[in-house]
Amino acid sequence: MVSTKNTVTRGDSVIMADGELLNLRNRYLAVILAWLIPGAGHFYQRRYAKSSIFFLSILSSFALGMFVGGGRCVYASWNSVEKRWQYVIQAGIGLPAMPAAYQAYYGKPGQFMAPPSSTDDLSQWNAETASGMDMGTLYTMIAGLLNMLVMFDAFAGPLPPPTTKPKGEKDSTGDDKKPAPPKAGASGSSSPVAQV
């Protein structure tokens, strides 16, 4: 249970979001966990609903991309065959994309997430999956980008800036003005920070 007597500022681990106090715990650890496994950072922060949403959404996108791409669209390569810049973005999903980093150095052609050994191999992969290779690459890249958003959320909370103080409590400047009332017809939030 988070104490309402905590000082709530944007730089602390206790923030206010959607009218509720939220303890981000060790935010740096949460970011690392969020990168390793989508949703793990939120699970550590006891934000279980969002953890489930992120885990299912991001990993399903990644899995769908792998399926469409014939299981070959995630690999790391930086040589004459291909400079695979897309992997940098795909790696945003953390552990699920890490086998490719290992395979780039120690993998053999044909193994899971191993890079193509020649341009002929790469052409064959593209021919076998039609445009599935490109679609799969796109899906897995989007999964990586989404996880970067999730990492930010694990570190700093929801994107709208949190209020600097709970209702009725003075902040460091002594300003105890009440926050502006939510606009009529908005999403039903009880806090101005929730308005988008």
Partner: peptide, 8 residues
């Protein structure tokens, strides 16, 4: 995911 990163 966008919704999840906007609200709690």
């Amino acid at each position: 995911v966008v919704g999840g990163t906007r609200h709690e």
